[in-house]
Design a protein around this nucleic acid. Structure first.
Lengths: 132, 132
DNA sequence: AAAAAATTAAGAATGATTACTGTTTTTTAT
DNA sequence: ATAAAAAACAGTAATCATTCTTAATTTTTT
Protein backbone atom coordinates (compact mmCIF):
# COMPACT_ATOMS: atom_id res chain seq x y z
CA UNK A 1 0.00 0.00 0.00
CA UNK A 2 1.13 3.52 -0.79
CA UNK A 3 2.59 5.88 1.78
CA UNK A 4 0.67 9.09 2.21
CA UNK A 5 2.76 12.14 1.39
CA UNK A 6 1.93 15.70 2.18
CA UNK A 7 0.16 17.73 -0.44
CA UNK A 8 -0.98 21.31 -0.49
CA UNK A 9 -4.23 20.30 -2.16
CA UNK A 10 -5.15 17.62 0.36
CA UNK A 11 -4.37 19.98 3.20
CA UNK A 12 -6.50 22.70 1.66
CA UNK A 13 -9.41 20.30 1.22
CA UNK A 14 -9.21 19.12 4.81
CA UNK A 15 -8.81 22.64 6.21
CA UNK A 16 -11.68 23.94 4.18
CA UNK A 17 -14.01 21.11 5.13
CA UNK A 18 -13.19 21.50 8.81
CA UNK A 19 -13.81 25.23 8.63
CA UNK A 20 -17.41 24.93 7.49
CA UNK A 21 -20.35 23.65 9.46
CA UNK A 22 -22.43 22.36 6.57
CA UNK A 23 -22.07 19.24 4.47
CA UNK A 24 -20.84 20.08 1.00
CA UNK A 25 -20.44 17.74 -1.96
CA UNK A 26 -17.13 17.17 -3.71
CA UNK A 27 -18.31 19.47 -6.47
CA UNK A 28 -19.11 22.28 -4.02
CA UNK A 29 -15.70 21.96 -2.40
CA UNK A 30 -14.06 21.95 -5.80
CA UNK A 31 -15.82 25.15 -6.85
CA UNK A 32 -15.03 26.98 -3.63
CA UNK A 33 -11.37 26.00 -3.49
CA UNK A 34 -10.87 26.79 -7.14
CA UNK A 35 -11.16 30.49 -6.33
CA UNK A 36 -7.93 30.36 -4.37
CA UNK A 37 -6.33 27.45 -6.27
CA UNK A 38 -7.28 28.11 -9.89
CA UNK A 39 -5.83 24.94 -11.32
CA UNK A 40 -7.09 22.53 -8.75
CA UNK A 41 -8.47 19.49 -10.51
CA UNK A 42 -11.85 17.92 -9.75
CA UNK A 43 -10.31 14.45 -9.72
CA UNK A 44 -7.93 15.59 -7.01
CA UNK A 45 -10.84 16.63 -4.83
CA UNK A 46 -12.62 13.31 -5.29
CA UNK A 47 -9.48 11.27 -4.70
CA UNK A 48 -8.47 13.15 -1.58
CA UNK A 49 -11.92 13.10 -0.07
CA UNK A 50 -11.79 9.35 -0.55
CA UNK A 51 -8.38 9.12 1.12
CA UNK A 52 -9.37 11.38 3.99
CA UNK A 53 -12.46 9.28 4.53
CA UNK A 54 -10.35 6.11 4.72
CA UNK A 55 -8.08 7.81 7.23
CA UNK A 56 -11.11 8.78 9.30
CA UNK A 57 -10.30 12.48 9.03
CA UNK A 58 -13.60 13.32 7.36
CA UNK A 59 -16.91 11.56 7.14
CA UNK A 60 -18.73 10.67 3.95
CA UNK A 61 -22.51 10.97 4.01
CA UNK A 62 -24.30 8.84 1.52
CA UNK A 63 -28.04 8.35 2.28
CA UNK A 64 -28.93 11.87 1.12
CA UNK A 65 -29.80 13.02 -2.38
CA UNK A 66 -27.80 10.59 -4.47
CA UNK A 67 -24.68 12.74 -4.33
CA UNK A 68 -22.09 12.12 -1.65
CA UNK A 69 -21.70 14.86 0.93
CA UNK A 70 -18.79 15.31 3.32
CA UNK A 71 -18.56 16.28 6.96
CA UNK A 72 -15.40 17.72 8.50
CA UNK A 73 -16.71 17.04 11.98
CA UNK A 74 -15.93 13.41 12.77
CA UNK A 75 -17.24 13.46 16.34
CA UNK A 76 -20.17 11.12 16.98
CA UNK A 77 -23.40 12.69 15.85
CA UNK A 78 -26.36 11.99 13.62
CA UNK A 79 -27.77 13.80 10.63
CA UNK A 80 -31.11 15.25 9.80
CA UNK A 81 -32.25 15.51 6.19
CA UNK A 82 -35.13 17.86 5.47
CA UNK A 83 -37.45 16.15 3.03
CA UNK A 84 -38.71 19.54 2.01
CA UNK A 85 -35.57 21.51 1.12
CA UNK A 86 -32.96 18.78 1.28
CA UNK A 87 -30.75 20.51 3.79
CA UNK A 88 -28.59 18.44 6.09
CA UNK A 89 -28.27 19.37 9.75
CA UNK A 90 -26.33 17.90 12.62
CA UNK A 91 -28.14 16.24 15.48
CA UNK A 92 -26.13 15.75 18.62
CA UNK A 93 -27.53 13.36 21.17
CA UNK A 94 -26.18 10.81 23.55
CA UNK A 95 -27.91 7.56 22.69
CA UNK A 96 -24.98 6.79 20.44
CA UNK A 97 -23.14 4.48 22.80
CA UNK A 98 -26.34 2.67 23.63
CA UNK A 99 -27.17 1.94 20.03
CA UNK A 100 -24.24 -0.34 19.30
CA UNK A 101 -24.89 -2.33 22.47
CA UNK A 102 -28.60 -2.61 21.83
CA UNK A 103 -28.00 -3.69 18.26
CA UNK A 104 -25.35 -6.20 19.28
CA UNK A 105 -27.99 -8.03 21.28
CA UNK A 106 -29.87 -8.59 18.07
CA UNK A 107 -27.08 -9.36 15.67
CA UNK A 108 -24.36 -11.99 15.71
CA UNK A 109 -21.61 -10.16 13.83
CA UNK A 110 -19.26 -7.58 15.27
CA UNK A 111 -20.73 -4.07 15.21
CA UNK A 112 -18.16 -1.30 15.38
CA UNK A 113 -20.07 1.81 14.41
CA UNK A 114 -23.30 3.16 13.12
CA UNK A 115 -24.83 6.13 11.44
CA UNK A 116 -28.32 7.47 12.00
CA UNK A 117 -30.20 9.49 9.41
CA UNK A 118 -33.30 11.34 10.57
CA UNK A 119 -35.96 12.57 8.16
CA UNK A 120 -38.61 15.22 8.53
CA UNK A 121 -39.17 18.91 7.94
CA UNK A 122 -36.70 21.54 9.09
CA UNK A 123 -37.63 24.67 11.00
CA UNK A 124 -37.45 26.93 7.96
CA UNK A 125 -39.69 24.69 5.90
CA UNK A 126 -42.20 24.36 8.72
CA UNK A 127 -42.43 28.14 8.87
CA UNK A 128 -42.81 28.36 5.11
CA UNK A 129 -45.73 25.95 5.12
CA UNK A 130 -47.61 27.86 7.79
CA UNK A 131 -47.35 31.09 5.83
CA UNK A 132 -49.09 29.60 2.80
CA UNK B 1 -50.55 13.89 -10.07
CA UNK B 2 -50.98 10.81 -12.25
CA UNK B 3 -53.33 8.01 -11.31
CA UNK B 4 -51.55 4.76 -10.68
CA UNK B 5 -52.81 2.03 -12.98
CA UNK B 6 -52.16 -1.63 -12.63
CA UNK B 7 -49.21 -3.04 -14.46
CA UNK B 8 -47.96 -6.58 -14.68
CA UNK B 9 -44.39 -5.34 -14.44
CA UNK B 10 -44.88 -3.29 -11.29
CA UNK B 11 -46.72 -6.16 -9.64
CA UNK B 12 -43.96 -8.58 -10.56
CA UNK B 13 -41.30 -6.26 -9.14
CA UNK B 14 -43.18 -5.84 -5.85
CA UNK B 15 -43.96 -9.56 -5.52
CA UNK B 16 -40.42 -10.52 -6.26
CA UNK B 17 -38.93 -8.02 -3.83
CA UNK B 18 -41.29 -9.12 -1.06
CA UNK B 19 -40.44 -12.75 -1.68
CA UNK B 20 -36.75 -12.36 -0.97
CA UNK B 21 -35.07 -11.60 2.32
CA UNK B 22 -32.00 -9.86 0.98
CA UNK B 23 -31.54 -6.35 -0.39
CA UNK B 24 -31.03 -6.45 -4.13
CA UNK B 25 -30.20 -3.54 -6.42
CA UNK B 26 -32.39 -2.49 -9.34
CA UNK B 27 -29.98 -4.23 -11.65
CA UNK B 28 -30.20 -7.52 -9.71
CA UNK B 29 -33.98 -7.40 -9.78
CA UNK B 30 -33.92 -6.65 -13.47
CA UNK B 31 -31.71 -9.63 -14.23
CA UNK B 32 -33.75 -12.05 -12.16
CA UNK B 33 -37.12 -10.97 -13.50
CA UNK B 34 -35.89 -10.97 -17.06
CA UNK B 35 -35.78 -14.77 -16.97
CA UNK B 36 -39.57 -14.90 -16.73
CA UNK B 37 -40.28 -11.59 -18.50
CA UNK B 38 -37.79 -11.55 -21.36
CA UNK B 39 -38.63 -8.09 -22.61
CA UNK B 40 -38.77 -6.29 -19.31
CA UNK B 41 -36.90 -3.04 -19.59
CA UNK B 42 -34.33 -1.78 -17.10
CA UNK B 43 -35.91 1.66 -17.08
CA UNK B 44 -39.19 0.08 -16.03
CA UNK B 45 -37.54 -1.50 -13.03
CA UNK B 46 -35.93 1.78 -11.96
CA UNK B 47 -39.13 3.78 -12.47
CA UNK B 48 -41.33 1.33 -10.60
CA UNK B 49 -38.93 0.94 -7.72
CA UNK B 50 -39.06 4.72 -7.43
CA UNK B 51 -42.87 4.72 -7.47
CA UNK B 52 -43.12 1.88 -4.97
CA UNK B 53 -40.72 3.73 -2.70
CA UNK B 54 -42.89 6.87 -2.85
CA UNK B 55 -45.94 4.78 -2.01
CA UNK B 56 -44.07 3.31 0.93
CA UNK B 57 -44.46 -0.23 -0.37
CA UNK B 58 -40.74 -0.83 -0.51
CA UNK B 59 -37.77 0.83 1.12
CA UNK B 60 -34.77 2.27 -0.66
CA UNK B 61 -31.41 1.81 1.02
CA UNK B 62 -28.80 4.33 0.10
CA UNK B 63 -25.80 4.54 2.50
CA UNK B 64 -24.32 1.26 1.20
CA UNK B 65 -21.91 0.79 -1.69
CA UNK B 66 -22.90 3.68 -3.90
CA UNK B 67 -25.62 1.67 -5.62
CA UNK B 68 -29.18 1.84 -4.33
CA UNK B 69 -30.53 -1.35 -2.76
CA UNK B 70 -34.17 -2.16 -2.10
CA UNK B 71 -35.94 -3.83 0.79
CA UNK B 72 -39.38 -5.44 0.43
CA UNK B 73 -39.79 -5.49 4.19
CA UNK B 74 -41.05 -2.07 5.23
CA UNK B 75 -41.45 -2.85 8.92
CA UNK B 76 -39.27 -0.77 11.24
CA UNK B 77 -35.79 -2.20 11.39
CA UNK B 78 -32.19 -1.20 10.90
CA UNK B 79 -29.49 -2.46 8.58
CA UNK B 80 -26.05 -3.84 9.07
CA UNK B 81 -23.42 -3.46 6.39
CA UNK B 82 -20.41 -5.76 6.57
CA UNK B 83 -17.31 -3.72 5.83
CA UNK B 84 -15.57 -6.91 4.84
CA UNK B 85 -17.89 -8.53 2.30
CA UNK B 86 -20.42 -5.75 1.80
CA UNK B 87 -23.43 -7.84 2.68
CA UNK B 88 -26.50 -6.16 4.11
CA UNK B 89 -28.37 -7.78 6.99
CA UNK B 90 -31.47 -6.80 8.90
CA UNK B 91 -31.21 -5.77 12.53
CA UNK B 92 -34.45 -5.83 14.48
CA UNK B 93 -34.46 -4.00 17.76
CA UNK B 94 -36.86 -1.92 19.76
CA UNK B 95 -35.14 1.38 20.37
CA UNK B 96 -36.73 2.69 17.21
CA UNK B 97 -39.57 4.61 18.84
CA UNK B 98 -37.20 6.12 21.38
CA UNK B 99 -34.83 7.45 18.77
CA UNK B 100 -37.20 9.97 17.23
CA UNK B 101 -38.12 11.32 20.65
CA UNK B 102 -34.53 11.50 21.83
CA UNK B 103 -33.50 13.28 18.66
CA UNK B 104 -36.43 15.69 18.84
CA UNK B 105 -35.05 16.97 22.12
CA UNK B 106 -31.94 18.02 20.25
CA UNK B 107 -33.40 19.37 17.06
CA UNK B 108 -35.96 22.08 16.38
CA UNK B 109 -37.50 20.77 13.16
CA UNK B 110 -40.13 18.07 12.89
CA UNK B 111 -38.64 14.57 12.82
CA UNK B 112 -40.90 11.95 11.28
CA UNK B 113 -38.63 8.97 10.70
CA UNK B 114 -35.09 7.73 10.76
CA UNK B 115 -32.85 5.05 9.44
CA UNK B 116 -29.92 3.48 11.22
CA UNK B 117 -26.99 1.91 9.41
CA UNK B 118 -24.65 -0.26 11.45
CA UNK B 119 -21.15 -1.12 10.31
CA UNK B 120 -18.81 -3.90 11.32
CA UNK B 121 -17.86 -7.43 10.37
CA UNK B 122 -20.45 -10.12 9.77
CA UNK B 123 -20.33 -13.60 11.27
CA UNK B 124 -19.02 -15.24 8.12
CA UNK B 125 -16.20 -12.75 7.74
CA UNK B 126 -15.25 -13.06 11.41
CA UNK B 127 -14.94 -16.80 10.93
CA UNK B 128 -12.88 -16.32 7.78
CA UNK B 129 -10.41 -14.07 9.54
CA UNK B 130 -9.85 -16.55 12.39
CA UNK B 131 -9.02 -19.31 9.95
CA UNK B 132 -6.20 -17.36 8.38
C1' DA C 1 -65.37 -1.62 -28.62
C1' DA C 2 -63.37 3.06 -29.18
C1' DA C 3 -61.14 6.93 -26.94
C1' DA C 4 -58.24 8.54 -23.31
C1' DA C 5 -54.76 7.81 -19.95
C1' DA C 6 -51.04 5.41 -18.15
C1' DT C 7 -47.24 2.27 -18.91
C1' DT C 8 -43.90 0.08 -21.43
C1' DA C 9 -39.47 -1.09 -24.28
C1' DA C 10 -35.49 0.44 -26.17
C1' DG C 11 -32.08 3.22 -26.41
C1' DA C 12 -30.00 7.92 -25.90
C1' DA C 13 -28.60 11.30 -22.49
C1' DT C 14 -26.98 12.75 -17.99
C1' DG C 15 -24.01 13.42 -14.26
C1' DA C 16 -21.28 11.89 -10.44
C1' DT C 17 -17.28 9.42 -9.92
C1' DT C 18 -13.09 6.86 -11.43
C1' DA C 19 -9.19 5.77 -14.40
C1' DC C 20 -5.44 7.14 -17.35
C1' DT C 21 -1.31 9.77 -18.92
C1' DG C 22 2.24 12.79 -18.84
C1' DT C 23 4.01 16.49 -15.66
C1' DT C 24 5.09 18.49 -11.17
C1' DT C 25 5.85 18.00 -5.98
C1' DT C 26 7.45 15.81 -2.27
C1' DT C 27 10.42 12.66 -0.08
C1' DT C 28 14.62 9.86 0.26
C1' DA C 29 19.40 8.95 -0.15
C1' DT C 30 23.54 10.35 -1.42
C1' DA D 1 22.03 20.41 -1.30
C1' DT D 2 20.91 17.57 -5.19
C1' DA D 3 19.74 13.57 -7.94
C1' DA D 4 16.73 9.52 -8.02
C1' DA D 5 12.42 7.48 -6.58
C1' DA D 6 7.79 7.79 -5.06
C1' DA D 7 3.57 10.02 -4.69
C1' DA D 8 0.39 13.53 -6.21
C1' DC D 9 -1.23 16.57 -9.59
C1' DA D 10 -3.95 18.54 -13.80
C1' DG D 11 -6.52 17.52 -17.54
C1' DT D 12 -9.17 14.62 -19.93
C1' DA D 13 -11.34 10.33 -21.27
C1' DA D 14 -14.05 6.52 -19.67
C1' DT D 15 -17.49 4.27 -16.68
C1' DC D 16 -21.65 3.19 -14.80
C1' DA D 17 -25.98 3.85 -12.24
C1' DT D 18 -29.85 6.30 -13.14
C1' DT D 19 -33.06 9.30 -15.74
C1' DC D 20 -35.20 10.90 -19.87
C1' DT D 21 -37.35 10.54 -24.50
C1' DT D 22 -40.34 8.61 -28.03
C1' DA D 23 -43.20 5.66 -30.24
C1' DA D 24 -45.82 1.48 -29.33
C1' DT D 25 -48.68 -1.28 -26.12
C1' DT D 26 -51.82 -1.96 -22.05
C1' DT D 27 -55.07 -0.60 -19.05
C1' DT D 28 -58.97 2.01 -17.84
C1' DT D 29 -63.01 4.67 -18.93
C1' DT D 30 -67.06 5.77 -21.59
Amino acid sequence: MPTLNYSKQRQAILDHLQSRKDHPTAEMIYHTLRKSMPNLSAGTVYRNLGLLTELGQVKKLTGLDGVDHYDGDVSAHSHFICQCCGKVDDVFFDADALLNEKAAEHYDGSITSHHVYFYGTCKACLKNKKEK
